[in-house]
């Protein structure tokens, strides 16, 4: 319908523009991947010789394993807490009409707008004033300050599309509160909750500025990469960088598969029951 106001050459121009932006977005990641396969200690393009030795190094290195473990633990815990709190928060954000809602909505957005480096420093100050030693646990807390509002927003978008009459109808048809939640509310909101979880995990996994100041002696992968970038480049930097990119992409792909599988099994179930 809308295409009627867009001429053919205009469409081509826009398509070319999209392509350019995508190249712009993925070029640096491609550069990192290239570097990780270079045999040289220092990167040069075009690459004279390809090699996978840095990957072997990465997989066998104990410190890499530690980094991976820290990053994973932080991201996993952040995800669990953020999904629960953000789900409740999203209901307050988008579902119910209440007095302080407009203020609540705006307060919730503030941390997203806030420069993360400054937030990380403020939290460092906060921990030291309260006498809390910094470790990966304080990083979990720091990540949550920034990620909770984002997860709440993501889930809210799904909640906005939720018709309260669904719950009322279920209740009217005899369902108890728990049955309403299990049969109606949760299954309808689940895509939003799932994307909220995905966002939480990936944003925590890739976070650098908050981790930098709040992990103490522990270190996450982005932090370690940064320290190696500014002092003492090693080819492990592009290697590990590529691995995190691939990891994130695999997770997204896996999530996509899960969504498709759930959708299919739902349909299959409907067919079986019907």
């Amino acid at each position: 319908m809308s295409a009627m106001s867009t001429s053919r050459p205009m469409k081509w121009l826009l398509a070319v523009w999209i392509g350019t932006v995508l190249v712009f977005l993925y070029l640096p990641m491609a550069a990192i991947a290239l570097a990780s396969f270079s045999r040289q200690r220092y990167f040069r393009f075009p690459i004279p010789r390809f090699d996978t030795r840095w990957y072997e190094d990465a997989f066998t290195s104990l410190s890499v394993r530690d980094l991976l473990w820290t990053s994973l633990t932080v991201a996993a815990i952040v995800t669990v807490i953020s999904v629960v709190l953000a789900f409740l928060g999203a209901l307050a954000f988008a579902r119910y009409d209440w007095k302080g809602r407009s203020v609540y909505q705006k307060l919730l957005l503030l941390p997203i707008f806030f420069p993360q480096a400054v937030l990380g420093l403020a939290l460092l100050l906060w921990y030291s004033a309260l006498g809390i030693p910094t470790s990966w646990m304080t990083a979990v807390f720091a990540h949550l300050v920034w990620i909770l509002p984002i997860a709440t927003l993501v889930i809210s978008i799904q909640v906005y599309g939720f018709n309260p009459a669904w719950e009322e109808a279920a209740r009217d048809l005899g369902a108890s509160r728990w049955q309403v939640f299990r049969e109606v509310t949760l299954p309808i909101l689940w895509p939003g909750i799932f994307s909220g979880a995905l966002f939480s995990f990936l944003l925590s996994w890739g976070n650098f500025p908050l981790s930098l100041f709040t992990t103490g002696a522990d270190s996450t992968i982005p932090e370690w990469l940064y320290s190696k970038m500014v002092s003492g480049y090693t080819p492990l930097v592009p290697t590990l960088g590529t691995l995190t990119v691939v990891g994130a992409a695999l997770l997204l792909l896996g999530a996509y598969t899960v969504i498709m599988l759930v959708r299919r099994s739902r349909q299959a179930r409907a067919t079986a029951e019907g």
């Binding site: 299954p187 309808i188 019907g274």
Partner: peptide, 10 residues
């Protein structure tokens, strides 16, 4: 208020 995630039969 038909449940969007369920089939007609469900």
């Amino acid at each position: 208020a038909l449940f969007p995630h369920k089939s007609v039969g469900q």
